[in-house]
């Protein structure tokens, strides 16, 4: 088993929580994991990425090699495209389609969607909208984690356990909303790939 994942987004959107929950799940198994993330200046509203590698064999590089990523999980549509050079030809591009516009020259949405859908394997999901529906806009990142769950080869219950561990101290209500978000994301992808 080997999964090389790029997590992408804008500083503050919550890619590190996704990484933390996957990390929490994996560290309880015999799998190896490396997860490289960005800190410091790059966090302030700029493009951020995290490289997540899971394998049943020893992992050498902390960085995913170019052209070898099995999936990109992106919290923002333009950011999902920034990491194309990492993605395998048949890797999955799983992205939120609500744009985060904080630059003057942000591209047209239809152009972005065309690029996203032009990739062989893609899941384009409005996770902001889903998170709002369940009354927890900040759980958008957990919708995205759910949407990528069918490709992760990690038991779904372990991701749920990860959410309980990471959000536990914030109270049962927050835990439940994030579990809902996770489930809604997974349902979306399952429907999409079974179509």
């Amino acid at each position: 088993m080997k999964k090389d994942i790029i997590l992408a987004g804008v500083g503050g959107q919550g890619i590190l929580s996704i990484a933390t929950i996957i990390g929490y799940a994996v560290v309880k198994t015999d799998l190896y994991l490396k997860q490289a993330e960005a800190h410091g200046m790059s966090q302030r509203g700029g493009a951020v990425e995290s490289h997540l590698r899971i394998s049943d064999k020893e992992i050498h590089s902390d960085l995913v090699p170019h052209g070898r990523s099995d999936m990109i999980i992106s919290l923002e549509p333009m950011e999902s495209l920034r990491y194309f050079p990492y993605l395998k030809h048949d890797g999955w591009l799983i992205t939120n389609i609500t744009p985060f516009v904080n630059i003057p020259n942000y591209p047209e949405m239809e152009h972005l969607l065309k690029e996203i859908k032009g990739h062989k394997n893609s899941i384009a999901i409005d996770s902001d909208a889903i998170a709002k529906e369940i009354g927890s806009p900040r759980s958008m990142n957990m919708v995205m984690l759910g949407a990528s769950a069918p490709f992760l080869e990690i038991p779904f219950e372990m991701l749920e356990d990860g959410i309980r561990a990471v959000f536990g101290r914030k109270g049962e209500d927050i835990v439940q909303k994030n579990l809902d978000a996770l489930n809604r994301g997974r349902d979306f992808t399952e429907k999409h790939i079974n179509k």
């Binding site: 200046m41 302030r44 509203g45 493009a47 333009m78 904080n102 630059i103 020259n105 591209p107 690029e115």
Partner: peptide, 10 residues
């Protein structure tokens, strides 16, 4: 179409 997104003051 992907543009640079530098960090900014919050």
């Amino acid at each position: 179409i992907v543009k640079g997104r530098p960090p900014e003051l919050c």
